[in-house]
Structure formats: C-alpha cells, structure tokens
C-alpha cells in the first residue's frame, strides 16, 4: 500500500475515533482541539508515530518470529508505554523547550488513541516506516475528527434540539453519522484509487 493510501485509510475508514471509539476517554481529554492546542497535537502525533514504529518493530522482529504474537497488547504496555513514559519523564524533568515538549508528550503516552493507532498499524502488516506513517496519520485523522465533531456540535447549539438529546447523546449520534459516511472510504476503495 502506498503512503498516500495509508494516510487516506487511517484518516477516513480506519479513523481510530470512528472505528474504535478511541479518544472518548479521559486520557485523551487534554489532546482535544482547543483544549491542548497545537502543542498537544504535535505531541500526540510524535508519540503516535514513535509508538507505532516501535510496536511494529517489536511485533515484526521479536513476537511474530517467536510465535508470541498473542502477547501483543502486553508487549505494548511493558515495552512501549513504560519506555516512552520513562523517556518523556526524563525530558520533562529538564528545563527549557525540551522540558515543555516532554510534559506535553508525557500526557499522550497512555492515550487510547495512541494505543489504537499502534495496534491497527501493526496488524496491517506494515514495515516500520509505514507503521510510523500510519501512526502519524491516525493521530491527525483523530484530531480532524474531533475538530469536525466540535464544529457540528457548535452548529447544533443554535438549533432547537430536544433537551434529552442535548450534549452527550447528540455527540454520539453525530459521531455515528460521520462514522457512517467515513466507513465507505475503506482500504479497498483507497487502494483502487491511489494504489
């Protein structure tokens, strides 16, 4: 699959918010558009890229050859999360720009968006570089989806919506409708168009 195909797939049909529901949890609260700003977005992108590449390497060179691919989620937690958390903690304890970057990145390590991106890219049989691209695309796709839903919710606030549907129910219904539209843009369609 080409890199353009990977990006399209992970932004639309394979969007981690619409496909897995990732990012509706508290762990992703700070990463939301407007809440964390561009700094949080960049931190999420970098962490997602690194964790996807790292997890893909662990799977490709260690777990699959040893026939231990069933341990995939555990390997993610013990290798990727703890390693990245230690690295970002070390960065955050410093000073200056690196410390700021470390603090922003530390908040993203346990995000289920990053986890979903790493798992879905490693299960697609990508190389390390492709997995990294998929991780970055998944983070960007998730961010775009959240911004889109926020805009929809802002518009709906001006409409006469029944009280029972206001807030969370309307957010989920809007997410469902957008997800339905996005689910049509799947891997087969993208592969036919861009290879």
């Amino acid at each position: 699959m080409s890199y353009i195909g990977i990006v399209f797939t992970f932004v639309f049909g394979g969007n981690v918010l619409f496909r897995y529901g990732a990012g509706t949890c508290a762990g992703a609260k700070e990463t939301r558009a407007g809440g964390g700003g561009w700094r949080a977005f960049l931190a999420l992108g970098v962490i997602s890229l690194v964790s996807s590449a790292l997890h893909s390497a662990v799977m490709r060179y260690a777990l699959v050859p040893l026939g231990l691919d069933a341990l995939e989620p555990l390997a993610y937690m013990f290798i990727v999360v703890i390693l990245l958390y230690s690295l970002t903690s070390a960065l955050a304890s410093g000073s200056g720009f690196l410390a700021e970057a470390g603090k922003a990145a530390k908040e993203q390590v346990l995000s289920c968006v990053v986890y979903a991106a790493a798992l879905s890219s490693s299960r697609s049989g990508f190389s390390m570089a492709e997995a990294a691209a998929a991780g970055l695309a998944a983070a960007a796709g998730w961010w775009c989806a959240v911004v889109l839903l926020e805009r929809i919710m802002d518009r709906l606030e001006l409409e006469d919506v029944p009280p029972a549907l206001q807030g969370t129910p309307l957010w989920f219904i809007s997410a469902g409708l957008v997800a339905m539209a996005f689910s049509g843009i799947d891997r087969l369609l993208v592969a036919r168009i861009v290879g």
Partner: peptide, 19 residues
Amino acid sequence: LLPFGAFLLLGYCIALYRL
C-alpha cells in the same frame, strides 16, 4: 453491529435514560 451503529445506539440509549 458496526461501530457507527454502536455510536448511534449509545446516543439514543443515553437520551432514553435521561427521559
């Protein structure tokens, strides 16, 4: 049974719970 259906159903279930 699809993810988007789960979102829709969850939204309507929460609305019913509120009602």
